[in-house]
Amino acid sequence: MADKHTDKQQNVSTTQQPEPSESKQKKNDSPTKLILKRFVRNKLALAGIITLLIIITVSFSAPLLTDHDPTRTDMLNVNAEPSDEHLLGTNPSGQDNFARLLYGGQISIQIGFYITLIVTVIGVVLGSLSGYYGGRVDSLIMRVTDLFLIFPFLLLVLTVVTILEDTSLLIFVVTLGLIVWPNITRILRGSYLSLREQEYVLSARAIGASDFRIMRKHLIPNAIGPIIVNATVVMAQMIILESGLSFLGFGIPDPTPTWGKMLEEARNLGVLTQRPFEWFPPGIMIVLTVLSINFIGDGLRDAFDPKSRSRR
C-alpha cells in the first residue's frame, strides 16, 4: 500500500509496453498471454464466462429444446399451468412460456450485443478524435456529450421512441445506440488523453506518421483494455435497459419475445400474485446474464490493468 505510486507506474508500463526484464521473468509471455493468465486466475470472471456461455448456448439451441413456436398463439390453451407439455405454462395469448424464455433470450442478448457494437464504434471514433486532437474538436464533442447527459437517460429514450413511432428491431437498436454513446466516449477520451502524451506517440509523430496512422496503430491498440471493459459495462446496461423498456411496453413490437416483454405480463396483478412461474424465470435470466457480464468485465479490468485490483 505504501508504495502504491511506484506500483502504479510499473504496472501501467507493463500493460502498455512490457519491459524486457519483466517478459524474461515470465518466460517470454506475450502481453496477451499475460492478460489471459490473469483473467483465468480470477474465479468470479471464469464463473461469469461459463454461465454466460451456457445461457447463450441454451438460448440459441432453442429449436432443439422445445417444439413450441414462441410466437404461435393458441386461444384454446391460454394461461395454462405448468405441465409436461408447457414447462412454464402459457401466457394470456396461449404462447408457450418456456419457448418464449429461450427465444426471448436470443433477442435480448442480440439487442444488447448490437447496441454495444454501435456504441463502442462511436465511442472509439469520437473518443480518439476528441482525446487526440484536443482543442476545438474536443470541446465540441464534449459539449455534445454534456447535452446528452443532461437529459435523464430513460426519459430521452422514451421520448425519442415515441417520436419515431416505428420501433422495428433495427430502428430500436440504432436509436438506442445513438442515445447511449456519450458516456463511453467520455471514458475513452480520458484514456486517449493520457496515451497521447506517451513517448512512442511522440516518436511516431517524429518519424512523420499521419494522425490517422497514430490513432489506428498506437492509440486504439493501447486503449483496447478500457474499450473492452467498457463494452461489457454497456452490454450489461443495455440488456437491463431493453428489458425495462419492454416492461413499460416500449420495446420491439409483438410477437417477437424478449425477457422484458415476459416480465411485462407481471404488471397484471393476477399474473404477479398467482403465476410467479411466468415472470420469475425471465427476471432471473436477466440477473444471471447481467451478473456474468459484469463479472467478466471486472475480471478483464483486473487482467488488463492489475493496479485496479485494489480499487474494485
Binding site: A236, I240, S243, G244, F247, L263, A266, L272, T273, P276, W279, G283, I286, V287, V290, L291, N294, F295, R312
Partner: peptide
Amino acid sequence: ATVFGFFGLAVPNFFFALIAVYVFSF
C-alpha cells in the same frame, strides 16, 4: 458488500419491485 454491490447493479429495478410486491405485499 461486494456481492451486494454486484447484485444491486445486476437486478433490474422493476424485477426487484415485482419480487418486493410479491413477497412483502402479497
